[in-house]
Nucleic acid binder design. Structure first.
Lengths: 326, 326
DNA sequence: CTGTTAGCGCTTTCAA
DNA sequence: TTGAAAGCGCTAACAG
């Protein structure tokens, strides 16, 4: 690999001039700059980011922590983050915590040395532990809010409220909710949005306790749901809804004729499940983009107060929910 | 962040002694080492990897390039890689090329500065372009073989051969194959394995041209498959098979009564598709583990000749393939 | 066994 | 406009 010295020698200038030509901060005569750039290109010179980072304190890359890479909820968020990163010529470090809180702490610590900032998606850590990491001015949370830290949140309250509206319009008066992980901070918003609006509309809401946000967990909930005497079921996320649907269908339940089902995330590709799943879409790509924007802001002015953004959801009405009115 | 100097001062020794205590290469008295370690822990000192990398030439992390993070085929491979990396206290940089060949080249170049080596999973680049990158002694290919480069390959030939055996035993004598992307190097092995064994067994094989390895592409193939007068269909991968199944079912075709269907990758979670899909499993986690092993070997002895490993596949017989014999 | 010192490749004052 | 020189945090000879 060519170093800055090689370029300097070849171009007949000092390394300082090469550095300036490349970074364009300070003035260099157009003529020298042109020659330096030419030589640099010819030598395929790429400044060593580690070395640059040593002196500037900036590495030019960010880290992203997700609880589960395979969960389709995170994919668009990652896409949004990478989109912004690429446009700024920054690298993205992705790490999968596998829903393991301990691993999360370790990974954050580890990642912190190699990146300028981190995006923590759906962090499962305790607020205290998170704060102890002292990363508040180089981190942005997605889908989680902690005092003093920047975050972009999903307005699940609004999303779930609108979902209840939808169900109400369809005539449902008794619906069940399959809750997700107890640590999920989004969980509370979802539950509240559901409960508050249900109350307003005079709809009975039966909340079934915590479970993992997995296809398998959805399947395992089928029996309980069946015994419940509700006409509609809302799941914590699409994976659970999906598992539930397939299992119910195996048990001979007709969806949506006998039971309406809705999920959250809008993470299932068109046609993957039948009937097409009604779902609340949190607009993942936008989440990722906004998170990166906030992070970049924050890295510019670490002293600035933390800002929290709330992004709305859209209810995607599809075939798994249907009217029970005559 | 505490630096090595802080630790040295606090422990009353030189920075060299701190370095030695931490790295354990050279001898330090147990007493001093203990004190240094204690101070380091108290200060939450973590050596700056960039700085260390500058002098040692090793950064302590590897990069992984995958064509599509959302494709479940890559998930276990990634898991295998991360498993080995974690055990060696190395970091993993993941980059998604989105099936874009140009992006792949750029990302490799970019990543190369921040990592000691890279694992290129299912690289789509030209052999020439890949060689031009001059990364052969710091890269390992997965699912792709290029002269002079280390690689761990999937024995798709064997896997597909055994799948034909399975189909033959079930009495099928005329089967279709839905091919994948034309650039896929695995494609040829799959096609050959299928064709050779089919020929040996006197089975007719109808090969349908290239398509993307996506659920949608599978759905779009349904009509063509239906018009084909075959009793079994093998798809390039599970995603295609899955799309095909759902679309065929919508069209009223009974699977596997009217048509047996099999995929490749074994990437679909139990219960996600009905009937459960017969699939050839390439054992992704092992692929990832072996790839990392090879990479680590390579980084130790860059001069060693490139080695290519071939990992066998296992045919997972499930409910989507059935006997047509009486 | 431990300290001093010379860089790794780069950016950034400070002079010229 | 350009160059010399001082480090960024760390490791690795080389002395002692």
């Amino acid at each position: 690999m060519a170093t800055i010295h090689d370029v300097a020698r070849e171009a007949g200038v000092s390394i300082a001039t090469v550095s300036r030509s490349l970074n364009g901060r300070s003035r260099v005569s157009e003529k020298t700059r042109a020659r330096v750039l030419e030589v640099a290109a010819a030598l395929e010179f790429h400044p060593n980011r580690a070395a640059r980072g040593l002196v500037t304190g900036k590495l030019g890359n960010v880290g992203v922590l997700v609880p589960d890479l395979t969960n389709p909820f995170f994919t668009p968020i990652l896409a949004g983050i990478e989109e912004v990163a690429q446009s700024r010529d920054m690298g993205v470090f992705v790490a999968d915590t596998r829903e393991d809180v301990d691993a999360e702490g370790r990974l954050i610590t580890r990642l912190s040395q190699q990146v300028d900032g981190v995006v923590l998606v759906a962090s499962r850590m305790d607020e205290e532990d998170l704060l102890d990491l002292r990363i508040k001015d180089k981190a942005v949370l997605v889908n989680r809010v902690v005092r003093g830290m920047s975050a972009v949140a999903i307005d699940a309250y609004q999303g779930m409220s609108e979902l209840v509206d939808h169900l109400g319009e369809l005539g449902h008066t008794r619906i069940a909710y399959l809750d997700g992980p107890s640590r999920s901070s989004l969980g509370r918003s979802k539950r509240l949005g559901l409960a508050d609006r249900a109350k307003e509309l005079g709809i009975d809401l039966i909340v079934l306790g915590h479970r993992q946000p997995t296809f398998a967990a959805g399947r395992e909930s089928a029996e309980e749901v069946r015994s419940l005497d509700v006409t509609a079921v809302v799941a914590f996320d699409d994976l659970i809804a999906w598992g539930l649907i397939t299992r119910l269908q195996e048990l001979g339940v007709e969806i949506p004729q006998e039971l309406s089902i809705a999920g959250f995330d809008d993470a299932i590709e068109e046609g993957m499940v039948r009937p097409a799943l009604t779902s609340v879409s949190p607009q993942g790509t936008s989440l990722g983009i906004r998170a990166m924007d906030l992070l970049l802001d924050r890295l510019q002015r670490p002293a600035a107060p933390a800002s929290v953004e709330m992004l709305g959801c859209i209810v995607k009405k599809r075939d798994s929910t249907r009217s029970i009115l005559a």
